[in-house]
Design a protein around this nucleic acid. Sequence first.
DNA 1: CCGCGAAATGATACATTGTATCAATCAGGG
DNA 2: CCCTGATTGATACAATGTATCATTTCGCGG
Lengths: 172, 172
Amino acid sequence: MNGPESMYKASQRPEAEAQRRTLERLESVCRSRGRRVTRQRRAVLRALLAQGGALTAYELLERLRVEDGHSTPAGVYRALEFWMAAGAVHRLQSTRSFILCEHPEAPHPGQLLICRECGQVVETQDKGVASAAHRLGERLGFVFDRHLVELTGVCGPCRARGRAAEAECRHA
Amino acid sequence: MNGPESMYKASQRPEAEAQRRTLERLESVCRSRGRRVTRQRRAVLRALLAQGGALTAYELLERLRVEDGHSTPAGVYRALEFWMAAGAVHRLQSTRSFILCEHPEAPHPGQLLICRECGQVVETQDKGVASAAHRLGERLGFVFDRHLVELTGVCGPCRARGRAAEAECRHA
DNA sequence: CCGCGAAATGATACATTGTATCAATCAGGG
DNA sequence: CCCTGATTGATACAATGTATCATTTCGCGG
């Protein structure tokens, strides 16, 4: 979780670099399929990247309107749908929001782990869950083409914080 | 899947009996927690039971209005929320709809298998999926209290129908 | 370079889904 | 009976998502 970037202490430099590369990668995937990368679509991607987490369509809309006053819901949804089709964005059904895909090259059925405290979302491609789902389908005669797996709870750091606060309480 | 009831050939008799028992069971669970079983709540439960599958809140509303002209969205959602809290109804995020729980006594994290052809929804309590999810959480430090697992695809009968239609096509 | 056709956008209106609020009513215990 | 909390009614509204159609842009073949 903490590598060489810890020396930068929340500075934006290396993240910015990584973000630029992420953008490049997503855009090239898109172009290679003969689809256009437009200003609007890039704006949606950048907003999600900048957020570093999930945003609802209308939160996204607000941010786009800072730069482009005549963004519309339809436009935002079109861009989101576009990137979802490309596998670059996922929709979180639990929170009606959207988030950048962290594994855009791997089209496996994935899982989204959501911390209700800090809002963090971790995307995984767990073989165990995927294959258990597949086996379950086989047993019951189903063939799935869409896996919606969203696990909501509390992440490690937030649990630790919670326990600390609790202890605090007892001492007071 | 097919037991003694096949001799009735889609007659309503035994289902009606089973439904009555299901209602009783759900209502008693509810009463045992000191909550009231009211006309409105019972109506919602009965509509879902009669449907034998998923309904959106507004589809439900239409049906309730047949009997009670002044049902409102708020009322429907209140009843749904009530039964969801009791574990008797699940929300399908994939389709924004609601369905009776088939295992109201088992509070395990469950899965919903959805056939996109016929709309059938099968609810399971698969240990394999649940424990894979749990292990995944452990590996990443998460403790989950909400499992949203909806697997969408095509069920066995519908696949068979699909293949038959395809063959038909080739012969034409 | 031009112009064609597909892709994408703009603009508007609308559809669907879900909530907030607050007064009125109901159900059961003391 | 009256008190209290649960429930409903009624209304308005908030949040989320789509349909439509005219217009613009883009990439490409000529």
